[in-house]
Simulated assay, not measured.
Amino acid sequence: MSKAAPQAPLTPAVFHILLALVGQERHGYDIMQQVKSDSEGAVEMGPGTLYGSLDRMIDAGLVAKGNTRDPRRIYYKLTTLGLATLRAETERLSRLAVVARRQLGTA
């Protein structure tokens, strides 16, 4: 991913992490719990997936380290590019869902 423009498609892990960070800085465990809640238990993200994804997302400019309120934890926050990328991916998935419903006859 480059830092220039929103990237799509996103992996499910990256999509869920970006979604978990909308409007709030979170630490790793909190992100994992939010992903589980947002997916209604369908997605349980482990630490390897989470921290590997976060490292790549920081490099891509989608996420940044936030304020350290607790020295035992690293907080992460959504960047402007991260929010734009999440919005673009959400729109892409919405358009794709419309096409899929039409093809399946459930529109």
Rank of each mutant, 00 (worst) to 15 (best):
A13I: 08
I31K: 06
K36V: 12
L18V: 02
K77H: 09
D70Q: 10
L10K: 01
I17R: 01
T80R: 12
A97E: 07
P6E: 12
Q103N: 00
Q24V: 13
Q24L: 10
V14D: 04
G52R: 08
L96I: 02
L104F: 04
Q7K: 08
A84I: 00
R102Q: 04
A100R: 14
L81E: 05
G23E: 09
L18F: 01
S39T: 13
L10G: 01
E89Q: 14
Q24A: 14
R102H: 01
L104D: 08
I17G: 02
Q24D: 12
L21A: 02
M32D: 06
V63L: 02
I17F: 02
A64K: 10
N67R: 15
D38L: 15
A13D: 15
L50T: 04
G23W: 05
P12A: 08
V98K: 01
E89V: 02
A8T: 15
M1K: 11
T80Y: 05
T80D: 14
A4C: 07
G61N: 03
D59I: 00
L62K: 01
T90H: 07
L10W: 04
R56S: 04
A8L: 14
A88P: 00
L86Y: 09
Y76D: 03
I31H: 06
R26T: 05
V99G: 00
S37V: 14
G82P: 04
V63A: 01
G23S: 07
L54Q: 02
R92V: 05
L21D: 01
T11P: 06
V99D: 07
D59V: 02
T85A: 05
Y75Q: 05
P47Q: 10
L54N: 04
G28F: 07
Y51T: 09
L62P: 00
R87S: 13
S37I: 12
G46F: 09
A107F: 03
T106E: 10
K3G: 15
E91I: 12
V35D: 08
V35C: 09
T80K: 12
D55R: 14
L86A: 00
E44H: 09
